[in-house]
Design a protein around this nucleic acid. Structure first.
Lengths: 214, 214, 214, 214
DNA sequence: TAATAAGCGAGACGGTACGTCATGTCTTCCG
DNA sequence: CGGAAGACATGACGTACCGTCTCGCTTATTA
């Protein structure tokens, strides 16, 4: 997860010069989280200068270790300094009921805020992904962006338990569900619990009319 | 779809003053399309100043009719001046085969370009959605962003034909599939045809192990 | 004082078409005066658009009859729609006393306002002169800009009365005095009555007919 | 003369961060001078953007240290980067002859240019004074705008030498003369040497110590 | 009385400068 | 020598005004 760009990372050795200040690293992450989460600054209004000031850190210290704003924000999001307000998926054994419950809880959580505060972080996430350069691309290849929503995990456990058919890819399914949620949040502002549940049921049961009259 | 902000548009009447130049309107749309599609400028490098120059139009003429860059780009995308490279979904009556064929064709189309050219427009679309203000939000509420991919349409026709169960919402399903595709394209660059097909099959058939052999 | 540009002004004839609206002409002058005098807009913030709006007149109607903003403002200043706050010079026969009195009254008048309100119109006048093109230049050649300050007039009357030496040019002297006043107002804000009186005395001692032959 | 706004300028201390680049400072001054003097751009066509480009300097670097265009131009004029074409006043001991000579030389110098090139800088000076905000006002309070014309200096030397009456303020007299000159240049284009000489004589006849030895 | 002509208020047009802001680099000093 | 402070060049932003133009209407003169 370190971004240290083009640094060979001499294994056990102690590299020359003053080592990277972990305090600064954390300060930047926390500042970013604070600005996104507490101040609720949208991505465009979140500036590197502001992060540096908030963290009590020189601007160059940020540019030394991250490619750009997107990289900072993505690391903060992906490493859990900022969390999207999704709930844990319960694991009672009844997958269908668990998912329904997850949807209900999450929707309730996301909708309780006034305005579209609930989507600020999501928008920042998407903005960072979309605007990101190559380094961000690489980072994303090895990362499950939606891991914070716990959905894939639950589906995987169901898969392992044999509840799902073998040829089902739990990650892909989770990604599809989250894609639908995200688009809904970005376009209409709030996710719609009912539609979402029906979508999940379709995924569980299939969409085709079972027309087996025989 | 009209942008004229807060103009009652008195039906037959002709309002005083110089009327809006439809030529300028089109020029802006075409310039935007040209820059996105031909020059393949990513969203951040696509500036209002450049659009104005390319269209031979004053900057203020853009700001008079659109709230910001996002609104211009979204209108160009939504009204079809720029198209995402997705293929028509065939309608042979066999939904499953049609979808498979669509996936194959589209993936082939999207991957044939060098680099990540295929995702430039998609990134712009998402960037515009994500960065857009309230006016963009409103526009999106009445718009199916993915309509250009023809998937929802095909599913709806299947739904009408009774091929899908009544309680399935074709738009939601399409949105989920497109969400997965988009996230894949944004994070790993190209969509993976095989995964995609399996996802579609899951949606058609259901994910649950039918474990009732008895 | 008509600006009708390049119009031969066919003597008695009545040209075809709608004649110039004197109402609009006056409305523009009055609007300009109101904005300068009442609203105390400085010249740079006084826009043609604002004048047109204030006058309830189309922008083109202004540009049809005046070359530019400077011409409008200058006409308003020169034709007396706006007046600089200088007092009449009394004419008691005692030139020296009259000038002293004039200085005192004028300085008092100019200083009574808070801030630098007293200089707003003066600044506008100078701005218009300085920014004006050729047409303004022409207008100024036949105009005594400082006529509103009544100084030249009084000096001329003294000259005619034989109080001043023959080779003294009253207009030039007035221009010099006003130049000093103006520079003082522009640079330090207020004119300084004492300095001014001393300057006038110097000029008088040099300018007065030495009529003491004895 | 320093522009550093509201900076305590801790005497010997060296403040943190990168210090102001004197190179940029000079580059801006020289660019302004070049544009005014060589390119002969009138004040309105002299833009901050152009100055920045000509100086190879970021626009923000100008706005960081100067309030606006007027401040830049005024500093260039007042610190001698741009000079008005007035001649030195000779000092032969004979004040009257010296002034006559000065008028002749200066008028000749100012009139030799074609068009009104001679007045471009003067117009810029007045424009800057007139349009300038509070900071400019302050700057002007401690500055003799006409110092470049050397007139006040010569008068002061005469004053010190006892040639002028005690109660004569040489600065005020110079200001009056220059005011007349300037108004003439602004309104009719060229100064009129004869009128000017007569004005000076009037002032002298009033200002000279009447050393009547008889 | 109809045609013609110009002026009118309104307001959109192509331009362009404004002053602000953010980016990413560079320089200086402190620890 | 790492890191903070912060100035630097660059360039987009959104606003404002300029002076021109196109509307549909109104007001005169001319036929």
């Amino acid at each position: 997860m370190t971004e240290t760009p083009a640094v060979p990372a001499k294994s056990t050795a102690s590299r020359r010069g003053r080592p990277r200040s972990e305090a600064s690293h954390q300060a930047v992450m926390e500042a970013t989280a604070r600005l996104l989460d507490v101040e609720e600054l949208p991505y465009e209004e979140l500036t590197v200068e502001r992060i540096a000031a908030e963290a009590g850190v020189g601007k160059q210290t940020i540019y030394r270790w991250w490619e750009n704003k997107a990289a900072v924000v993505l690391e903060a999001l992906v490493t859990g300094y900022v969390k999207l307000d999704f709930h844990q998926v319960p694991d009672t054994g009844d997958l269908r009921a668990d998912l329904d419950s997850w949807v209900e809880q999450s929707v309730k959580g996301l909708c309780k805020q006034d305005e579209d505060e609930g989507t600020v972080i999501l928008r920042s996430l998407m903005a960072a992904i979309v605007s990101g350069g190559e380094a961000i691309q690489e980072l994303l290849q090895n990362t499950d962006v939606w891991s914070g929503m716990h959905l894939a995990e639950r589906l995987r456990s169901a898969h392992t338990a044999g509840e799902l058919r073998d040829d089902v890819d739990p990650g892909m399914v989770a990604s599809a569900v989250m894609g639908a949620v995200v688009m809904q949040m970005l376009t209409v502002g709030k996710p719609d619990g009912e539609s979402l549940k029906r979508l999940l049921h379709v995924m569980l049961d299939g969409a085709l009319e079972p027309r087996r009259p025989a």
